[in-house]
Amino acid sequence: MDYFLTEEQRMIKETARDLTEAKIIPKRAELDERNEFAGELLADIAKADLFAVLVPEAYGGMGVGIFDIVLALEELARGCVGVATSFAACGLGILPILISGSEELKEKYLPAVAEGKSLAAFGLTEANAGSDAAGIRTTAVDGGDCWILNGTKQWITNGGEAQIYSIIALTSPEKGIRGASMFVVEDGDPGFSYGKKENKMGIRASATRELVMKDCRIPKDRLIGRKGHGFITVMKTLDVSRPGIASLGVGLAQAALDEAASYAKQRVQFGKPIISFQAVQHMLADMAIQTEAARGLVYGAARHIDAHPEDASKVSSMCKVFATDAAMKVTTDAVQVMGGYGYMKEYPVEKMMRDAKILQIYEGTNQIQRNVIGQELNREYA
C-alpha cells in the first residue's frame, strides 16, 4: 500500500532495506547460533547514518519523528529482530534524556549516539519489578557531592555493550514510586558492573545482562529531570517507544510471509506447487491481512504520537499489542506452511518464530497493554 512517504522517509526506508539485504541477512543465522552480539552490524548501521534518526537535529541527528524511526526499525527487523532490538534499545535508552534531561546532558550524550559511537540502554526491570514498575528496589542516596546507587537491574538489552544507561531508582523510598528519579550511569563508573550474559530463546544477536550497582557513585549532574519525577519520565518514555517494538513485529511478519509464500510457490506436492491449494492460500492470505493491518495501525499510531505526544498511551499500547500478536501468529503459520523444512534451522522461519515471542513480552507484556487500553477507555467513556 502507498503510505505517502516523503522523499526523506523513502530514503531512510531504502537505506535500512539495502543494509539489511547486504549485511544483516547473510550474518543472522551465524549470530543466532553463536549467541553473539551484533557489534559489527551495529557499526554498519552507524556507517549508514541510521543512528542519526534517533537524535534531534540540534545534537547531530536528523531531527525526524517516531514515524521515521518506525520505518527504519521495520526494515532492520526484516533481517534480524535481534539486531533491530539492539538498535531500538539504544533509542529507548536516550529517550529519558530527550524527554526530561537538561540541555547539558543532551549536549554531552546525544551527539555520540547520533554518530553511532555510543550505545545506550534503559534500566527499569528488576527481579520484583517488571509489569509492576512500582516494585523497584534500587535506591539512589544523596552523597553530598554525588549520588550513590545500590541495586540490580535485570534483563537489560545492550547490557555490558552500552556506554550510557538510563536508570530509575528510589530517591525517597518512603514515597514509593512517587519517590523515584532517573539517572545516567556510565560504563566504567565505580561500583557499576554486569552480570552474566543471558542465554535466550530468541533475539540472540542482542545482549541481555544484569546491571549491578554496589555503592555506585555518579556526579550530581547525572540526575535526569527533577528529583521524584522518574516514574513520569518512564511512562512517557514507554508511550513513545512502543510503536518501535510494534514495527519490529511488522518487519518480522513481513519477512516470514515472504519466506512462506516463496517456498509455497516452489514446493511441489501431488504434482502442483502447494500455493495452488486452497488450504495454503487461505493461510497465506490471513498472514498477508494481519501483516498489512498491523503496518497500517503502527504507521497511524506513530504519526498520531508525532502530532499529539500528550495523547500517546492508548494508541501506543494498541499498536504494540496488535502488531506483536500478529508477528507471533504469522511466524507460527510460516513454519506450518513450510512443514518439516520450516522446523529446521537451515531455513530462517524457525528463528523468526523464536524471535517473535519476546515481542509480546518486553516493554510491557501484551496483557499489561490491554490493561492500559482498558483504563484509557474507562476514562474516555466516564
Score class of each variant (00 low, 15 high):
residue 83 V to H: 08
residue 83 V to A: 13
residue 69 I to M: 14
residue 61 G to E: 07
residue 75 E to I: 02
residue 80 C to N: 15
residue 60 G to S: 05
residue 66 I to G: 01
residue 63 G to H: 10
residue 70 V to E: 03
residue 77 A to W: 03
residue 67 F to N: 11
residue 78 R to G: 13
residue 64 V to F: 04
residue 75 E to W: 10
residue 65 G to F: 03
residue 76 L to D: 02
residue 69 I to F: 10
residue 55 V to N: 10
residue 82 G to D: 03
residue 64 V to G: 04
residue 75 E to R: 08
residue 58 A to N: 05
residue 79 G to M: 10
residue 56 P to H: 06
residue 67 F to I: 00
residue 59 Y to A: 06
residue 80 C to A: 14
residue 76 L to I: 07
residue 76 L to Q: 05
residue 83 V to K: 07
residue 84 A to V: 11
residue 71 L to N: 12
residue 59 Y to H: 08
residue 58 A to I: 07
residue 81 V to K: 09
residue 71 L to V: 09
residue 60 G to N: 04
residue 71 L to Y: 06
residue 57 E to W: 06
residue 59 Y to M: 04
residue 62 M to H: 08
residue 65 G to Q: 08
residue 83 V to W: 11
residue 73 L to Y: 05
residue 79 G to C: 08
residue 63 G to W: 01
residue 58 A to C: 01
residue 73 L to D: 01
residue 79 G to P: 09
residue 81 V to S: 11
residue 66 I to A: 14
residue 67 F to E: 07
residue 79 G to A: 00
residue 80 C to P: 01
residue 57 E to Q: 12
residue 59 Y to C: 13
residue 80 C to Q: 08
residue 55 V to R: 10
residue 78 R to A: 05
residue 63 G to I: 02
residue 64 V to C: 13
residue 64 V to A: 12
residue 60 G to D: 11
residue 67 F to P: 01
residue 70 V to Q: 04
residue 83 V to D: 04
residue 72 A to W: 06
residue 61 G to Q: 04
residue 68 D to Y: 02
residue 70 V to K: 03
residue 81 V to Y: 12
residue 84 A to T: 09
residue 62 M to K: 15
